[in-house]
């Protein structure tokens, strides 16, 4: 079983079969993670650098854990503690690290297309851990994995992605993946946070009314309002956002079915999601986090050239 790609730059480049392979491999790794000894020697002697040019806690920890469970050697690099502050270019930074014989690069970067740029210039395999407002492919994969685990299928599933679609790489990867796997997608949020051409670009539905979106869907993937990305006035206040697009238990109970609630984290409690909804039995938010490790193990394992899995 081999992927058709050398890097994981985005779901955009993956075939349906690639996605299938990754999800199936992740299922096996999830089983490994339930064992008393969670570590496998698959990536022994493989060195991976986690390059984070943008803040991240959960994705970085998840990748690091995945790498350690695969017995890879890891090094961490964060922009604040690096030479980037001294004006070094991305290519120089990465080439310097690679010259110390590093095999794979996991990178998060604030510029869309940064990993694609890197892929053109360096020999190592690259895993995109989020680039600008473009993609966050492992998040898309772990979301799909969690949906499939919870509901048994992706095909025909109705998924609503709610919130700041414009600045969300999670939304992008989810849309690409769900469309490739035959699910139906609606994006919902304030019109100022929904890209003008998204309907035509992906053949999906757009909904500005939260209640209608929730009534339609099987799964609601609620996005974080990215306060750090609001460089223009796109909505009036968090209070008003919460009034129009916040999800709480009362709203969930008013629907005539039990939908699944997901969130890529970290949650702004009381803004896009109230605690009574986030912590309800409809929420699979913590399972998403757990699945993240298995999915990232699968990606790293498959991109390392598919060594013996134990």
């Amino acid at each position: 079983m081999q992927l058709s790609v050398k890097h994981l730059l985005g779901i955009r480049d993956l075939s349906r079969q690639d996605i299938q392979i990754i999800l199936d491999t992740a299922t096996q790794f999830k089983e490994v993670l339930q064992r008393p000894i969670k570590k496998v020697p698959s990536l022994r002697d493989v060195t991976i650098v986690n390059l984070f040019f943008e803040n991240s806690t959960r994705t970085r920890i998840s990748f690091e854990l995945a790498e350690k469970r695969l017995s890879a050697d890891t090094i961490n690099f964060t922009a604040s503690a690096s030479s980037v502050a001294k004006g070094e270019t991305l290519l120089d930074t990465v080439n310097n690290i690679l010259s110390m014989k590093v095999d794979m690069v996991v990178m998060r970067h604030s510029a869309s297309g940064a990993p694609h740029f890197l892929a053109k210039h360096i020999p190592a395999a690259i895993v995109n851990a989020g680039d600008g407002i473009n993609e966050h492919p492992t998040q898309g994969l772990l979301d799909a994995f969690s949906m499939r685990e919870k509901l048994g299928r992706l095909e025909g599933l109705k998924v609503a992605i709610i919130g700041d679609i414009m600045h969300s790489r999670v939304a992008m990867s989810n849309i690409y993946l769900l469309k490739k796997m035959g699910a139906e997608v609606t994006v919902a949020g304030p019109p100022t946070l929904i890209p003008k051409y998204i309907q035509e670009a992906f053949d999906i539905r757009v909904e500005y009314n939260l209640k209608k979106a929730l009534e339609w869907c099987d799964v609601a993937n609620v996005l974080r309002i990215q306060l750090e990305r609001q460089n223009q006035v796109l909505f009036s206040s968090l209070r008003e956002y919460s009034l129009a697009y916040g999800i709480n238990k009362r709203l969930l109970d008013s629907l005539n079915k039990k939908i699944v609630i997901m969130h890529p984290g970290p949650i702004n409690r009381g803004v896009e999601l109230d605690s009574d909804a986030a912590d309800s039995n409809q929420s699979i938010i913590l399972q998403q986090v757990e699945n993240g490790v298995a999915v990232r193990m699968a990606v790293l394992y498959l991109l390392s050239g598919g060594r013996e899995m134990n």
Partner: peptide, 13 residues
């Protein structure tokens, strides 16, 4: 240019 391609590429249009 803002359009279908910029949306697919995740680049601000």
């Amino acid at each position: 240019h803002e359009g279908i391609v910029s949306t697919r590429l995740g680049l601000p249009g």
